[in-house]
Design a protein around this nucleic acid. Structure first.
Lengths: 215, 215
DNA sequence: AACTATTTTAAACATCCGTTTAAAATAGCG
DNA sequence: CGCTATTTTAAACGGATGTTTAAAATAGTT
């Protein structure tokens, strides 16, 4: 395997588990069995390595996601919100074939990216992969046309929070659940449980927001 | 103001904005206009400072939360999920009187605590303030008795994710929303929008989970 | 085989980190 | 006041971090 890929494989697991700031280049390179300077030689900087790690997943995910969502948008029957969110299952679980534990690793990385490093990763994702967001918004709009653009905006970000946060601590949660409830569960099981939740959340009845203060 | 409080005031804002690992003691002490060694003198270590920052908020929040939830549990009418979650509004917004931007700062800290520093803060909160979790679970159980303990577990963690994640990036989201939708919004407005979402999510119909593989 | 371009390596660099030390300053009190 | 206890201060400590350097090793090409 190439040095570049050895670095990427070691980096994404460590980044997912310990965060971007919490993982040093020395950990990555020793885990990958390459020289410390290899990161800066092949990627330029740690920041560029982070981008590369995310791009590898996004490039695998986003085309599948786009086709799944456009399939839903072009269907004759108006899709339910549950169907819209279920469109994510296939592309997300496909990451497990792309790389071992790929699904949970990617979702953990996504969670890290929103909180670590001053949110520069959110900027990276929204500017580099804007179609994912617009297609998603479009699908939700078809399934629930009464929602205003602003309400969709907020509810999609709530959803993003639910998913990303859950997955970033999914290992710990699965452990607790197995101890307390004796129920074997994996990442696919968590996804199956979260989808009814977010579908109901996005589909919540529209409530009039009383303006507390008119500035 | 005492040196201890100057440190706490400077620390929680910086911790909320840049994370625990991302904030150095030198940033905190220079922001607080105290000597670098003051943190180790008054708190012992950075880790103890983090605990102190969180305790200051939790000690202010948890009694109000407990009384609000127990009020709901003892009411004659069975509460709705919306009412259960609305019980959080008062105690949370009270943090704004306790400290400027206290509500969003605290929720950001909560989000940091779940992802930063290997989740030691989750351990700290669940062991030091277990009543908050059990009371909350109890209230949800009254409002939606058909939910099994395991389903409550998962949906409450989804909810935690929604809230914590949203608030940890609430400033950025409010900025975007103001630009795109011309709608002035503050932290209270975000809370008003998120409650119907999480109430609907927790109240989602129970779906039979098909076991993918029986190990 | 000879030469060039690419990659790998060990070492050093400057900088930042949390913590400790010991002296100086201040506060509290009989 | 004089003495003690508490707090503040400047400086240094050992260690970790991302990055750079320049030489060594390897690969590719004519």
């Amino acid at each position: 395997m190439s040095t570049k890929n050895k670095i990427l494989d070691a980096a994404d697991v460590l980044f997912a588990n310990k965060g971007f700031n919490g993982t040093s280049l020395r950990e990555i390179t020793s885990q990958a069995n390459v020289n410390l300077a290899a990161v800066n030689y092949h990627f330029g900087s740690k920041k560029e390595l982070i981008k590369a790690v995310m791009s590898r997943y996004m490039d695998e995910l986003s085309p599948r996601l786009e086709s799944a969502l456009s399939l839903i948008c072009q269907a004759e029957l108006k899709p339910t919100l549950h169907e819209v969110f279920s469109a994510f299952i296939g592309p997300l679980l496909h990451l497990n074939e792309f790389k071992e534990n790929g699904t949970s690793t990617f979702l953990q990385l996504l969670g890290r990216g929103y909180t670590d490093s001053q949110g520069f990763l959110r900027w990276f994702l929204t500017t580099q992969y804007p179609d994912v967001f617009t297609n998603f918004t479009k699908a939700v709009n078809i399934a629930y046309p009464e929602l205003s653009a602003e309400e969709i905006f907020w509810r999609l970000h709530f959803t993003m929070g639910t998913i990303v946060f859950t997955m970033s601590s999914s290992e710990a949660l699965i452990d607790i659940a197995q101890n307390d409830f004796d129920n074997k569960l994996d990442i696919a099981g968590v996804i199956e449980r979260v989808i009814p939740y977010v579908a109901a959340g996005v589909g919540a009845p529209i409530t009039k927001i009383e303006p507390l203060s008119l500035v």
